[in-house]
Computed example of a mutant assay.
Amino acid sequence: MAIRKKSTKSPPVLSHEFVLQNHADIVSCVAMVFLLGLMFEITAKASIIFVTLQYNVTLPATEEQATESASLYYYGIKDLATVFFYMLVAIIIHAVIQEYILDKINRRMHFSKTKHSKFNESGQLSAFYLFACVWGTFILISENYISDPTILWRAYPHNLMTFQMKFFYVSQLAYWLHAFPELYFQKTKKEDIPRQLVYIGLYLFHIAGAYLLKFSLWAVLFVLGRLLTLILSVLTVGFGLARAENQKLDFSTGNFNVLAVRIAVLASICVTQAFMMWKFINFQLRRWREHSAFQAPAVKKKPTVTKGRSSKKGTENGVNGTLTSNVADSPRNKKEKSS
């Protein structure tokens, strides 16, 4: 038997299959353009907007920090360029995890196509959630949110952020924005696209809202569970910010602490948590029904008469072990009796 050689033909350049097979390399080349731009004086000013965090403010040293000054950040339109660059980085990391971890597990486990796509989605999200939870926990500890939760609403608006806080927001936005082109790169089924668009949009809505409204709350919300999320949201937005002195809408100072905004924020959080719990409960109920249906006894089927020598004894003794009148009066029985 001749051995079939693998096809070495590559798809045409810039074709659909070429982009899908080599999207990580293409994105890596685009990211390298911005990094190489930092090496030349002519392009450095443009490239630095994409690579580094913008809107840096250096505050003078206080009595507690007599040795060094504090470097803080605020947000602006240039952050879109930074988010775009780190969206490219997220696509590259996604491809690395897929090729060197998930694909190897898939080849060993021999999953079906449906389980293969679900495993890839769950594996990518698990890696991101683990990384983000560790990073978020570090922010909670370093920013003293655990020891003093009143920082969340005290001295609002929080116009300035530390480097790690702003980088956390930029990374979160970049990751969830990269999920849109990944729907194309991973050949997501059409019936799965609406479901993924819903939770991608919800994450972007809440992260961008917390970032733009200067609520340094998402790092806490990401780490805690659904119930603690609601409790902390009501405590921060419903009680803490409601008792603040300045409750006037002021775009110049970035103060959004007004009743309408607080109600909108609480409503969006509550609706999102309720939606996620509803999806979770429906998923568990569906699994319970499938498990119950699988455990239920199978319906008895009618016996089928098979042809051949092995079935003659069964037919001679009747159906289901009962003696029929046809068998009792068969010609062979009468002939044997007469002899």
Rank of each mutant, 00 (worst) to 15 (best):
A267L: 13
S122N: 13
D250M: 07
R154G: 01
L53C: 11
K104M: 09
N320C: 05
M109L: 14
R108S: 05
S311G: 07
V27Y: 03
S216L: 08
P149D: 10
K118Y: 07
A267N: 04
E99T: 08
K189D: 04
V299A: 08
A132N: 01
W288V: 11
N257A: 09
F85W: 14
Q273W: 00
D79M: 01
L204M: 09
H94M: 04
A210Y: 02
N120S: 09
G308K: 14
R108I: 10
H178W: 10
S71L: 11
E68I: 12
V220Y: 00
E143C: 01
F280W: 08
M87E: 05
Y199A: 01
Y169W: 06
F131D: 02
L183E: 02
I3E: 13
A219D: 04
T236W: 02
V265N: 10
G238I: 08
D250K: 10
K187Y: 09
F205K: 04
K5R: 12
N246K: 08
T304N: 10
F275C: 10
M161F: 04
A90K: 02
K78P: 01
I92H: 06
I200S: 11
M1I: 03
T114P: 05
V261I: 15
R108E: 10
F34G: 04
T324R: 14
G123Y: 02
V265F: 04
R154I: 02
K307R: 14
D329I: 06
K307D: 11
A95L: 05
P60S: 13
E182Q: 14
E64R: 15
A66Y: 07
F18L: 12
A274R: 05
Y74D: 13
F50V: 08
R107M: 09
K45F: 01
F180T: 15
V134N: 09
Y199M: 05
I77K: 11
G238F: 08
T82R: 10
Q21I: 11
V234E: 12
Q186N: 12
Y86C: 05
D25L: 09
Q98H: 12
R289E: 05
K214T: 03
I97N: 07
R289P: 00
P194L: 14
K9H: 05
R309F: 07
K214S: 03
V134F: 01
F167I: 02
V134G: 05
A274K: 09
W218I: 01
V299K: 15
G240A: 14
L14P: 03
A179D: 06
F185V: 09
S142E: 11
Q284E: 05
A70P: 02
I139C: 07
S325N: 11
I3P: 06
S216F: 00
P181L: 14
L213T: 02
I42V: 13
F34M: 14
T62M: 13
A2C: 04
T315E: 11
N56Y: 02
H23M: 06
F84M: 13
A90L: 03
A260E: 15
A24H: 07
G240R: 09
F280V: 02
Q54N: 11
H206S: 00
Y169K: 07
V237E: 00
A61W: 10
M276V: 08
N317Q: 15
